[in-house]
Design a protein around this nucleic acid. Sequence first.
DNA 1: TTTTGAGTTGTTCGA
DNA 2: GTCGAACAACTCAAA
Length: 452
Amino acid sequence: MPAVAWFRRDLRLGDNPALSAAAALDGQVVPLFVVDPAVWDPASDVRRAYLVDSLRALDADLDGQLLLQHGDPVEHVVAVARAAGASEVHVAADYGPYGVQRDERVRAALAKQGIELVETGSPYAVAPGRVTKDDGTAYRVYTPFYRAWMRHGWRAPAADVEAEYVMPLECHGYPERPDLPFALPAAGEAAALERWAAFRAAGLTAYDDTRNFPALDGTSSMGHHLKWGEIHPRTILADLGDSAGEETFRKEIAWREFYADVMHQRPESARASMDVRFDDDFAWDSGERADALFEAWAAGRTGYPFVDAGMRQLLAEGWMHNRVRMVVASFLVKDLHLPWQRGAAHFMRWLRDGDLASNSHGWQWTAGCGTDASPYHRVFNPVGQGERFDPNGDYVRRYVPELAHLPGKTAHTPWDTLGGYDHGYPERIVDHAAERLEALDRFAQMKGSPKT
DNA sequence: TTTTGAGTTGTTCGA
DNA sequence: GTCGAACAACTCAAA
């Protein structure tokens, strides 16, 4: 009797314990992916295109046996399991706010047919909820979490699977892949393993030094592979030693796990500030002027070159360097006084690697309302950050053509440079020094102590 | 039990 | 130019 392996955010065959568990029954497996309107409909073109690419790669790895269905998972998972005569549906546990309730509904519907939903593993090295303080509650500070996560440890990568893949129903085919004005990086398990090998060979040793400089190819670019589970973090961790670069990269993996753990503990924190004062009491701006400022930010027309380069990179590539993500986030929240949720939604729309937990909590860190929050007085200077992390101005010139004529670091200060505005670059939409003081003032006006 | 010190990513100001 | 202090309040672990 075959078992169903229902893929969701684990689009790979290697190091896949849920797939191994499905194959362990009698070797026959129905590999299923359901294109769920609840996930598909709100997704941007970037995210849709990447998902289609990733599904095609998985299908190829399965010799064309991936069964695609479109619609409500409750309906389709049950129908596929019944058609296959399966008594078990195997999944990797999903800990996201939507995934948890979806899986509850599917579990209940399957149970009515005498079919079991079996969870094996998760998209994390350590499943959310496993690392706790001695009193059993969850960590709210990263560094203690990291130490406890290291002590907890994780399994070795799972063995390769031997299975016969079968398709008991007609396949619905791929959803339409939107045309993008740019090329996405290659999707799929082979591409993920290739990128990981290349990064290990070329970038990992210097990662500690180079990851903060957006003009360099110093980051791993593994985010989109991890987001869809084309590689498991455990596969990555198994390759990491103790050099400075490896330790720093392990800590980045741990950030992903920390934020997933926090969101599991507080599902509403995907949209709501952990410190509720920031949603209830804080003096965010709104209205026509605020909307115009938001549009300028989103389009990369704030007049601050480093910010604009980042926002334009996002639109041009579906990706933004992490250092610049922090700078543009700080600018939206502390210079424009707009709520972090507006920026987070824009990021999730455009980032090919947008992960709900990391995105929401990264923004909350910047806004000062989240777990392990940035101190309120930590306001990034958009010019200083540019001069420090893009000292030659290469990053700015790459993404802001109106500044391409300005040499070296002068690209960061067109207002101080003769001919700085000759090619149509916009004036600064706000005065950073003034808005920094305004932000500090609004924080000071918020009453009481943090309410989490 | 209480106390103490550290805690991803910063900036400004004054000496 | 460099350097330390100040910019809060809270969480957590260790002493």
